[in-house]
């Protein structure tokens, strides 16, 4: 009579209204997460010669996290996410090249501009099906690339925007050639933004995005304004992509037109899928593995490195359909099952 035993439980629970935690994420940092961020800090001291690459990995990781909000959580497929990365990069770059040298305010301006661009684009994007969304995002990316190309008197066109000069951060730390300040700056900003994203995805809003991805009909049937939620998610993803773009512009003190390119949109999608979409850390892990492999393979085999990189991607994604983190989670679950 297990059933009747269960039925007697409710009064006890009512007396202690604290929710049982279980699978509900309550916001506490797990040991693996602490280890991950401790690792990014330790890397600063362990690999002093690699600060430039390290800062680019962190920033690209944040860019992939911004796509994760849009794709992994809200389920909106996008082939044009670089549009917002590029908007952020150009806003930060143009400010710095035209007399506004303070970096933090430029970061905010870039986020705002990318958010506005994302909000406007979201009306075109969220209404359609997967295929129309792919096409619309791709089209928006292409249009922005061409606009930046045409406006070469402002953006520098295909030659890129140079003359990006920045004042010291908070008046104290000047960007150096070795990338020491760049790495520290990128780490602080990426960690701060990531902490915000982490809160958001476990909030009612963040969980409702997962609900929409899994059944938008059902979400509407429990009273959720589905399109408005998706527009909010797209805008948020765009704003964070803009921050990532601004960070690249500031740490490299240059904006190439490839910031807006289709290749960048495709590459960030590949990184996210490689790391594991919808898992928060997938973008960071994917960017790390992808860029380290890219860098390492280019060193080992300067001619055919793209072949080996493609090979790595195919193998990982074939064996771990949910990316590196999804595969690791499945293996861990299986190991736990065997121990029991």
């Amino acid at each position: 009579m297990a059933g009747s035993a269960e039925r007697r439980e409710p009064p006890r629970r009512a007396a202690a209204p604290a929710p049982r935690r279980g699978s509900l994420s309550d916001g506490r940092w797990r040991p693996l997460e602490v280890a991950f961020w401790a690792g990014t800090l330790a890397a600063y001291f362990a690999f002093p010669a690699w600060h430039v690459l390290g800062s680019q990995i962190l920033i690209t990781g944040l860019f992939a996290v911004s796509l994760d909000i849009v794709l992994g959580y809200a389920g909106i497929v996008s082939l044009g996410h670089a549009a917002f990365f590029g908007v952020g990069a150009y806003v930060a770059g143009l400010l710095a090249a035209n007399g506004w040298h303070e970096p933090l305010s430029a970061l905010g301006a870039a986020a705002l501009a990318a958010a506005v661009a994302g909000y406007l684009a979201s009306f075109l994007v969220v209404r359609g099906t997967d295929l129309t969304r792919l096409t619309v995002t791709l089209g928006i990316g292409l249009m922005l690339w061409e606009a930046a190309n045409r406006a070469s008197s402002i953006t520098g066109g295909v030659d890129g925007l140079s003359g990006v000069t920045l004042a010291p951060i908070l008046g104290r730390w000047t960007f150096d050639l070795r990338g020491d300040v760049a790495y520290a700056y990128a780490l602080v900003v990426v960690f701060a933004v990531f902490t915000g994203v982490r809160r958001i995805v476990s909030s009612p809003f963040g969980r409702s995005l997962v609900g929409i991805r899994e059944s938008s009909t059902r979400m509407a049937a429990i009273g959720a304004p589905v399109e408005r939620r998706l527009r909010a998610a797209f805008t948020l993803g765009a704003a964070i992509a803009g921050i990532a773009g601004a960070l690249i512009a500031q740490t490299t003190q240059f904006v190439g037109i490839d910031a807006l390119s289709f290749e960048r949109s495709a590459e960030v999608l590949v990184m996210l899928v490689l790391g594991g979409a919808g898992r928060l850390y997938g973008g960071l892990v994917g960017a790390l593995v992808f860029m380290v492999a890219q860098n390492g393979l280019a060193g080992i085999d300067p001619v055919y490195w793209q072949f080996w990189l493609g090979c790595l991607l195919v193998v990982v994604v074939l064996f771990f359909r949910e990316g590196i983190l999804g595969g690791a989670a499945n293996l861990a679950a299986r190991a736990r099952g065997r121990r029991r």
Binding site: P17, A18, P19, R21, L24, S25, D26, G27, R199, I200, S202, S203, P204, F205, G206, R207, S208, G223, A224, P225, R228, R229, A232
Partner: peptide, 13 residues
């Protein structure tokens, strides 16, 4: 409260 984005769902006691 479905659009609330800052506190965890778990804290909605």
């Amino acid at each position: 409260r479905g659009g609330a984005g800052w506190r965890a769902l778990a804290s909605e006691t």
